[in-house]
Every structure is written in structure tokens, then in C-alpha cells.
Simulated scan of single mutants.
Amino acid sequence: MKKKQIKGMLLLLLAAIIWGSAFVAQSVGMEYVGPFTFNCVRTLIGGIVLIPCITLLNHGKVKKKMTSSEKKRLMIGGICCGIALAIGSTLQQFGIMYTTVGKAGFITAFYIIIVPILGLLLGKKCGLSVWISVMIALIGLYFLCITDGFSIGKGDSYVFLGALAFAIHILVIDYFTQFNDGVKMSCIQFFSCGIICFIPMILFEHPEISTILLAWKPILYAGVLSCGVGYTLQMVGQKNMNPTVASLILSLESVISVIAGFLVLHQNLSQRELIGCALMFIAIILAQLPGEN
């Protein structure tokens, strides 16, 4: 396995760990503010956090002036990612209001199926081992997240549409990171997402500064770690990696959330959940075996 792929895999795994452990912040934040407000504030924070990071990363480097076409491509990439992120994260937040956490986690992870299917339409082929990994991961997620049967409701539909948007988000990143600096594009992504969420926030939620301040801890955590760190790790880690394999690694956030609940909240893992975790890890390892990925 190439060093770049190993590095990318580790960065994506770290992103999955951050997202899996950040779910508590998302849930708590929704007790104080609406989904548009939560996403608007946290993504703007994520964008602001990355500005000094970009400065530090460029410190001491020979500055190469970007051409107008390179600037345009960077802006288009960041805005496209921001649109997909705004749609996906907002639909997910709305869905969580009407469905259980387990079902939301399972349905969101459907992007591991959607990504390779959409990828085929874009000429991104996968080897047999990757397709087998996808199916094993899907079975694992079912064992992990669905404990009380399965039925389709209003919230489930929102979450599924969000999963479709996240799948598109992964493919958009896969395309634009070939040409652009991942950290800069991530910064533009967050500001684009924040601006998109700002309009419905003002029209439908009428947030007050006092309520936003009540939710400052979960918003700050989600903004700095989940957005600023997590999505930037995705941007950088996904470069030079098959998008289907990347989606498999990122789907480990469901496993991480269960493990975090066990370690931090002392929530015992059932035999069913342990089987789900094991299947997920087997799927990830299988996808990394040498072959046509």
C-alpha cells in the first residue's frame, strides 16, 4: 500500500473518530437552537478556525501566485462542497428530530452504497473486494444501529435524502481535491455552508443571541472539531483515495459513537452491537487488501 494511501486512511479514520464522538454535541445543541441556526453558527466557526491554520501552513513557504483560473476553480470547488454539506447536514438534523438515533445512523451510512453507484456513472470503478466490503459494512451497520425492527417514517426520509447529499459531497471532494488545496477549499466550504444556512435561519427560526450562547459548548465543539478539524481531515485524507473506500472508512463514525458511549457514558454493548462492530472492522480491512480498488 502506498504511503499516501496509508496517510489518507489514517486521516479519514481520525475524522470518523471525531464525528462519532461529536454526535452528543449535535444532540445537545438542538435543545437550544434550530437545525439551520446550529449548522450556520458551527460552520462559520469552522471557517474562522481554518483561517489561522492556512496562514501557519503557508508560513515559510515560497508563495506562488495563483492564476485567475486556479482561484476560480478553488472557489467553485469550495462552494460546491458547501452546498452539498449544507443540504446533507440540514436534512440530517431535521431527520434526527423525527426518528431514533440508531435508525438515523444506519440510514445516513447508506452513502457507502450510494457512493459506488454514483461513482459508476462517473467512471469510478471498484474491485470485487470493495463491493463485498460495502455489503458486509451495511450488514454490520444494521446489527449496530437497528435494534427494534425497521419501518420508514418522515424522519427516515429526511435522513436518507441527507445521505444522498453526503454521497455527492464525497464525490465532489474526490473531484476537486485533484486540483485544489484541501484546507483552503474546506475553509471556503464552511463559509458557503454558513451563508446558505443563514437565510432560512433568519426566515424560519428567528434565533436570539441568548439562546445561541446557551448552546455555546456543543456549538463550539461541533464547530472547531467536527467542522474545522473533521471535515478538513476528510478533504486532505480523501485525496488520492478511491471514494468508495473513503466512504467505508468514514462510516466507522457509527462504530465510534457506540464505543464512545461505552467508554464515556458507560453504556454496555449488546452482543448484537459487538457483532455489528466486528463486521464493520472486517469490511474496512477487506477494502484495504491489495487488489483492484
Rank of each mutant, 00 (worst) to 15 (best):
K2G: 12
K7G: 06
L14C: 14
A15R: 00
A22I: 03
V28W: 10
G29T: 01
M30E: 09
T37K: 10
V41C: 00
I48A: 11
I48C: 08
I48V: 14
L50M: 07
I51R: 09
T55E: 11
K64F: 05
G78H: 01
G78D: 01
G82P: 00
L85Q: 00
L85M: 12
A86E: 02
Q93H: 09
G95R: 02
M97S: 05
K103H: 12
G105T: 04
A109N: 07
A109G: 11
V115M: 03
P116M: 06
L118P: 04
L118K: 08
L121E: 08
K125Y: 05
L128H: 07
I132C: 10
G140P: 07
Y142M: 10
S151P: 10
I152D: 10
Y158Q: 06
V159R: 05
A163I: 05
L164H: 06
H169S: 14
I170M: 11
L171Q: 07
Q178P: 02
F179N: 12
G182T: 10
C187D: 03
M201L: 04
F204L: 15
E205F: 08
I209E: 11
I209W: 14
S210W: 10
W216H: 15
L220K: 10
A222C: 14
S226L: 11
S226G: 13
V236R: 04
G237V: 04
M241P: 00
P243H: 07
P243R: 05
L250K: 00
I259S: 10
G261H: 06
L269N: 13
R272Y: 15
L274N: 12
I275W: 08
G291P: 05
